[in-house]
Amino acid sequence: MKKNIIISSAIVLGALCFILASALRSDPEKLMINVARNYEGIYASPEDTIRFPGTVSAMKAEGDLLFGYVHELKKLYQYNTGNRKTTPLFDTQSFLSGILSGFDIDPVSGTFYFLNTNTNKIYLFRPKDSLKDSLYFKYLHFASGEKCFRGADFFIRATDDATSLTSLKKVDYTGGADTTLYTFTQYPDGGISADGFFIKDRSSEKQFFIPYYNAEIIQYDEARNNISKIITIDKTMPHNNVVPASHGYTISSKSRIINIAAAADSAHLFVLSFASSRGKNEPPGTVIDVYSTITGQYESSLQLPFFEGRRAVLLEKSGDRLYVAFNNDVVCYKIKFR
């Protein structure tokens, strides 16, 4: 009996010590993954720093031009990498109300599209003839989206009010038929697992939906009308976003933002990840993971330093240039694959 009490006490003490040691060494901010990143495949050298008059909330690159939208001033700015000049393009106050959820450019027609989820409208502006218009679909509530490469369609994420199902749709705002391209599995998580943002690459005619909270990136090949998935190396599954609690559900640690920003070129997808891997000092939000858009496989990673103490928030890719926004400043890197 005495021996029993001694061994049981040792078990209790051992368990308490282990938990206490774990708690003292814990790091609630860190999101660790089990993959060793490859830093040998890609090299980036800073080429230019562009200062905008306010925080850049959305960014697009087309050829030698970089467009940055400054929400606090409600202005769109254009930066020319040739002459290194930043010029205000136009004010959106006259035709855009509420918060902008994204913007897009059609370089052929010179039209800018501004998406607004509050009003459920897509605002058009063509600077060359000051054409202003808006697109509206009464029954379709979109959350975010991009203009398709072909025709007048938009690739958007929308939730059906009746079924609460969230889908990626190709929507014809001129009154034609809509196509549901992908429907997200529904979890009782308030839509967190299907929340994300869009990016695209014009040369390959590919659109990407990047989820904030899980690893399943949806790739839409518009030319082939084909949907496929790219799984990021953290492998966080969408169903892990919420966990049951005594009164309904609570957001689990797995629902922390993993993918912050992304950019694509004809063969690669660059994802700014919040996950850190073992063996290297990777403060959250400093690593860009590169995936092949052809094979869907992880290729290599790139670590970016903080800029004036700030971490990167937006990415954009054009040619061999990778633009990284840090609030007011955008750093342009030249990318080389080894």
Partner: peptide
């Protein structure tokens, strides 16, 4: 198993342990 590995990797208490 893959999900299990991914889950424990994200635990704030187990962040400094070798998950393998």
């Amino acid at each position: 198993y893959t999900d299990f590995m991914a889950d424990i990797a994200k635990s704030p208490l187990l962040v400094n342990y070798n998950k393998a």
